[in-house]
């Protein structure tokens, strides 16, 4: 299977190791991975801010960049959702582009969904050990149906103990630009998420979207929690003891 990785701008800037972990996982599942060099951002921030023209330009750029790849895999539910579910909406008035967006939508997968349902990964490269709790990021969950896939992968790791938190499916308060427009509300919502996560006693909070994870980690540290770790699912699945 030939896979093109869409790194996402947040991973590129903040946590490159998630990108490398994604490559490691895809290769462990038997894929040939390429990383198209010109990629930048999927356009979600401008689209959700109401700038249709800018969102359309970025959508076209991504569509062009990922021509010909058998699959496009994204280590983020919300960026994958942007490409799969929003590009056809953004380009609805341009039939040719819309058709190309729909064609791309059929090849785009969120990382854990791809590993479980397309690549049928057998053995994971990591041997992480410890207790974890999983935060279901909103757009991955409600837009892409990401729920069982990360849990199925964690279940393959004998050292992982999954402790489900209350209200795992509730928003962490990130919301992209919401987090910098309404910082106090956003942080107050994050505090509830941190409370639910920490109540499980898990050592590590795991999720599939870096935006949420930065929000949760930032809130934990501000609350004075120096011990609870916050990790992307790809980091956990590739972690070596």
């Amino acid at each position: 299977m030939r896979v093109a990785l869409f790194v996402t701008c947040l991973v590129d800037l903040m946590r490159p190791r998630i990108g490398f972990a994604a490559i490691e996982l895809l290769e462990a599942a038997g894929c040939d991975v390429i990383v198209p060099a010109g990629q930048t951002c999927c356009g979600q921030p401008v689209w959700n801010s109401g700038d249709r023209a800018a969102a359309a330009a970025l959508a076209k750029k991504v569509i062009d960049e990922f021509v010909g790849s058998e699959y496009v895999v994204v280590p983020s539910g919300s960026c994958a959702d942007q490409i799969r579910n929003e590009y056809p909406v953004i380009l609805a008035d341009e039939p040719e582009w819309r058709a190309r967006a729909v064609e791309l939508a059929g090849r785009v997968y969120e990382l854990t969904d791809f590993l479980v349902n397309v690549a049928h990964i057998k053995t994971l490269p990591g041997n992480f050990s410890g207790s974890v709790t999983y935060h279901d990021s909103c757009t991955g969950l409600r837009g892409m149906g990401i729920k069982e896939q990360p849990r199925a992968l964690l279940a393959k790791m004998s050292g992982v103990e999954l402790k489900e938190m209350a209200a795992a499916e509730e928003c962490c308060g990130f919301g992209g630009t919401f987090s910098v427009k309404f910082g106090e509300i956003s942080a107050a919502i994050a505090a509830k998420k941190c409370g639910n996560a920490c109540a499980t006693g898990a050592q590590t909070i795991v999720g599939g979207d870096l935006g949420c994870l930065l929000n949760i980690e930032g809130k934990l540290r501000r609350l004075g929690d120096e011990t609870t770790q916050v990790r992307h699912i790809a980091e956990v699945l590739t972690a070596k003891k």
């Binding site: 903040m14 946590r15 490159p16 190791r17 060099a37 910098v180 427009k181 809130k219 540290r221």
Partner: peptide
Amino acid sequence: APEWTLGRDFPAPEGKTFRELYR
């Protein structure tokens, strides 16, 4: 982005971009 740090910290980046490291 001052609103972000009103009620929480902003985690630091690793220090280099993925594209640099990958290349």
